[in-house]
Design a protein around this nucleic acid. Structure first.
Lengths: 197, 197
DNA sequence: CTAGTTTTGTACCGGTCGATAAAAAACTAG
DNA sequence: CTAGTTTTTTATCGACCGGTACAAAACTAG
C-alpha cells in the first residue's frame, strides 16, 4: 500500500560512520553537526532514522559489539581458559591500535567521560562492561570445574584482572602506545596467569 | 601603593573545589556554571583569578599531581624497584577508590574524553602521562644498573606494563570496582613482576 | 492523472555554552 | 575626605547545543 520517498542513504553505512565519530570523540565530545557531517545526512533524516542522539548511540554500541568488538564474545569459545584470555587480550590490542579506526576503545572512552547530562549514557556503557566481565567470570568458572584452571583461583578475581588489563591497554592505546609495545605488555602480564601445577 | 578590594575567597580552596568537579565530570563534561557553583564564586572572579576554563584546568592538573596524586612521584624514592611498583599500584588503587573523592583518575578520564574543542587539553594530559611513564622507566633503568632488576628485562616495557595496570585500575574504579577487589587484581598482576633468579 | 505516504532540504526554536562590559563595592595611600 | 586600584555583581554577548516545523520532492497505489 504505501510507498513514500525512498531513503537516500544506507542505514548500516550511516551507523558505521556514526560509530567512527563516537569512537574517536566520545559521546559528549560529539555534536550533532559532527554526526550529520560524517554520516552525510541532514539532521531530520538522522532523527527520523535513529530517534535522537542517545538512541543513535545505543545502536552504535550494538554495532560495535557485533562488529569491531565481536572478538570478545567469540573469545569465550576458545577451548582452554588460557586461550580465552589470550584472545581477549591480544584482540583488545588489535582493536585499540587498528590502523583504520580510532585509537582506544569506544566503551572505555564513554565509560569515563560524563557530565551530568550524559550520566545515563555512561551508566548504559558501564552495565554493558559489567555484563562482559560477568560472562568471562562464568567462562572461567566452567574452566575451573573442568580442571582447566587451578582450584585455588577465584574466577571473579581473574576475570577482573583480565578486564583491568584490557582496560589499561585501551587507555595506553589512546595515549599513543603501539601494537608491538602493547603486545610486550600483554606477554609480561600474562606471566601472572595461573598454571596447573 | 595599591590596595584594591580584597579577594573574598581562597585561591587554593577554590582550586580544590574545581578539581573535585573536573575529577568527577572530566573537562568537557564540566560547564562553567558547574565550576562557579562548586567554587562559590561568580564567573568574572573565576576569569580574573584563573584565566579561562583551559588555564584553570591546567592549574587543577598541577594541584592534582601535588596533592592526591603526589604518591606517584614519591613512589620513585622507594629503595627497591619492587617497592616502587607496589607503591605505584596500591597508591593508584587508593587514589581511585577514595571514599571522599570521585571514583577513577582525573588524568585517565581526561586523556580519553575529547571532542575537537578539547583536543589541546587532551594532548596536555597525554604528554604529562608520558612524562610520568618516562620517569618510571628511568627509575627502573637505575634499578637495573644497580642489580635490583634482572638484566634480561626492558625497563621501558616494564614501565609501560605498570602504567597499563594503573590505567586499568582507574577504569575499573570508575566502573564501580572496590578497593579490596582491585587489591586482589594487583596481587595477581604483580606475580608477573620479574624476580632475581 | 490524483491521492496518500515517506524522506529530503531549509530554516528555525529555546536553552546553554564560554567569555566579557560596565558599574557598584571594598580596600590602601595620602 | 579624595584618588587610585582591585574585586564583586549584574547583565549580557555571539556561538553553538540538541531538537523540530514546514514545505518541497520522490515514491506507490489506484
Amino acid at each position: 500500500m504505501p510507498g513514500g520517498r525512498p531513503r537516500a542513504f544506507d542505514l548500516d553505512t550511516a551507523l558505521d560512520r556514526a560509530l567512527e565519530v563516537f569512537w574517536r570523540q566520545g559521546y559528549e565530545g560529539t555534536a550533532l553537526s559532527d554526526l550529520t557531517a560524517a554520516m552525510r545526512i541532514n539532521r531530520p533524516s538522522l532523527y527520523a532514522a535513529f530517534g535522537n542522539k542517545e538512541e543513535l548511540f545505543g545502536k552504535v554500541l550494538d554495532r560495535y559489539v557485533d562488529g569491531p568488538a565481536a572478538f570478545a564474545a567469540a573469545a569465550l569459545d576458545a577451548p582452554r581458559a588460557r586461550d580465552v584470555v589470550e584472545r581477549l587480550v591480544y584482540g583488545a590490542i588489535d582493536l585499540t591500535t587498528g590502523a583504520h579506526t580510532p585509537r582506544g576503545c569506544l566503551n572505555v572512552r564513554c565509560a569515563q567521560a560524563c557530565g551530568p547530562q550524559a550520566e545515563s549514557v555512561r551508566q548504559e556503557v558501564v552495565s554493558r562492561r559489567m555484563a562482559s566481565q560477568a560472562a568471562l567470570r562464568r567462562r572461567l568458572e566452567r574452566a575451573q570445574s573442568d580442571g582447566d584452571l587451578p582450584a585455588d583461583c577465584d574466577p571473579a578475581d581473574l576475570a577482573r584482572f583480565v578486564m583491568t588489563l584490557t582496560d589499561g591497554i585501551a587507555v595506553q592505546a589512546a595515549g599513543g602506545s603501539g601494537r608491538d609495545e602493547l603486545r610486550r605488555v600483554a606477554e609480561t602480564a600474562l606471566r601472572a596467569w595461573p598454571t596447573a601445577k
